[in-house]
């Protein structure tokens, strides 16, 4: 970070011109976000079929048929996810850096990253391995297939509550910040996120209806709010990086 802005005069001829652009390090990180969210969409929607989630109220035979039909794409999709899931941390690091520029303790930035690590495990990795195990041997006892199916989707949708801390930390940091790094309306938007995330927990109770894991409220309203929030933060990060002075000192 600071090395890039401090060094250019001395090594001007030794380095390619594009690396001498101010804040090029942060811009590279920023561009990974739109690229990797598109890849995540491709993996979850087209290949692994967890978005939109398949129905919770189907018979064991239908679940076995689901795994047989999508066995190959589920395994390809989650194999790709293993490579790309780590890139979520680049986006999160970028947001954590902006939190560090705020007039709040860096503990908010650490908590932001930590909360996402907690959520990433049940939200991505546990469901991935449950589904891959199902797709790996679809000729198992159908009841075991039902368990892997439930495990994947309960974990994938039901873990949204883990992201409440992330949104609370971000909202509180923005409310307390006097440097106006990110606008206050993003903090209010994070409150919508908390509400929709709380409404994902009832998927542990209902097997059909609006609060099941494929429900209009638990899944679709929550996802719509998330998409709006995600577009907003990608755009606001762009503005925040643009407004950041290349020589600004950031707290450790």
């Amino acid at each position: 970070m600071s090395a890039v802005s401090a060094a250019p005069v001395v090594t001007e001829n030794a380095r390619p011109a594009w690396t001498r652009r101010p804040k090029i390090d942060q811009w590279i990180c920023w561009w990974t976000i739109p690229i990797f969210y598109n890849l995540f969409g491709l993996i979850f929607v087209v290949l692994t079929r967890v978005m939109p989630p398949p129905r919770p109220d189907i018979t064991p035979e239908q679940i076995v048929a689901f795994f047989e039909t999508h066995s190959l794409t589920i395994r390809i999709g989650f194999a790709l996810l293993m490579f790309f899931i780590g890139f979520a941390s680049v986006a999160n690091g970028l947001i954590a850096l902006q939190i560090k520029r705020m007039s709040v303790s860096p503990v908010f930035a650490y908590a932001y990253i930590g909360a996402l690590v907690v959520g990433g495990l049940p939200g991505c990795l546990l469901p991935a391995f449950a589904f891959v195990a199902g797709a790996f041997r679809p000729d198992r006892d159908p009841q075991i297939m039902v368990m892997l199916y439930d495990w994947c989707l309960l974990s994938f949708v039901g873990s949204l509550g883990c992201f409440c801390t992330q949104n609370m930390v971000l909202a509180l940091a923005i409310f307390l910040d006097k440097n106006d790094i990110l606008p206050k309306w993003l903090a209010y938007m994070s409150i919508w996120m908390i509400v929709t995330e709380l409404l994902a927990s009832p998927v542990f109770i209902f097997k059909s209806g609006p609060l099941a894991w494929n429900g209009s409220i638990s899944f679709y309203v929550g996802t719509a709010v998330f998409v709006v929030w995600e577009f907003a933060i990608i755009r606001l990060l762009y503005v925040a990086i643009k407004n950041q002075s290349p020589t600004e000192q950031i707290q450790d």
Binding site: P183, K184, W185, A187, Y188, M189, I191, W192, V195, T196, I217, V221, V225, V228
Partner: peptide
């Protein structure tokens, strides 16, 4: 301020969907 109005209008949209 406009930030609160963004919240209020958006929240009303979310509740309307419910």
């Amino acid at each position: 301020n406009k930030d609160m109005w963004v919240f209020v209008l958006g929240d009303l949209v979310i509740f309307s969907s419910y």
